[in-house]
């Protein structure tokens, strides 16, 4: 992936905990596209998403001491930081602009399938085409916009009690498609 050096996850964590800037560079090179993808999906604005990505990596660097390799994979830990940071920004931005969360939801509900050509080789188009619109939206609303069950029930106009069942079906469908990639 661009650099000849490779580290195991344990080595990488060890290096980061001893505050090696070289290990941080490696971490950034390997994980920034995935985490930028998260920020971009949440924020939908390349410039703000860039600022958010910077904040995400500073949080990772500053709180790596608290990461415990026994409690989960490094990627899971970093993605949680990325998602929370981006959603916090989204919510505060929405708040400032006086937007209601429901409007935010409607905005993605109307979003077209915009797939970055640069990443199409990963198979995203194929996945999105095979998920039905409602399945795609319910995953995106919950995961990328941080909507609650109540919010999703209002946005999609479905009973509150069925949100979890719909989500389960959507993720089962998603995992089936991913297995075929």
């Amino acid at each position: 992936m661009g650099t000849a050096l490779t580290y195991t996850e344990a080595e990488l964590v060890l290096g980061l905990k001893s505050r090696s800037e070289k290990h941080f560079g490696y971490l950034y090179d390997h994980y920034s596209p995935a985490l930028f993808g998260v920020a971009l999906k949440v924020i939908n604005d390349e410039t703000i998403a860039g600022d958010v990505l910077q904040e995400i990596f500073l949080k990772i660097w500053r709180s790596i001491e608290r990461y415990d390799i026994d409690k989960g994979r490094l990627f899971t830990w970093m993605v949680n930081i990325a998602r929370n940071t981006a959603i916090d920004t989204l919510r505060s931005k929405a708040y400032k602009q006086g937007l209601k969360i429901q409007e935010l939801g409607s905005a993605i509900a109307m979003e077209q399938f915009v797939v970055h050509l640069a990443v199409d080789h990963l198979g995203l188009t194929k996945v999105i085409e095979q998920l039905n619109k409602e399945q795609r939206i319910i995953i995106d609303l919950a995961y990328y916009k941080g909507c609650t069950q109540e919010e999703i029930s209002k946005i999609l106009d479905i009973p509150l009690g069925t949100v979890k069942t719909r989500m389960r079906n959507a993720i089962i469908q998603l995992r089936t498609i991913l297995k075929q990639l």
């Binding site: 941080f24 950034y28 995935a34 910077q54 500073l58 990443v119 995961y143 991913l178």
Partner: peptide
Amino acid sequence: GMEHYIMLHSVPPPPVVKQNL
């Protein structure tokens, strides 16, 4: 599965972010 889906959305970030960091 979810992390696989997330990875599919990978986009190279602008180079200025790394320089700043």
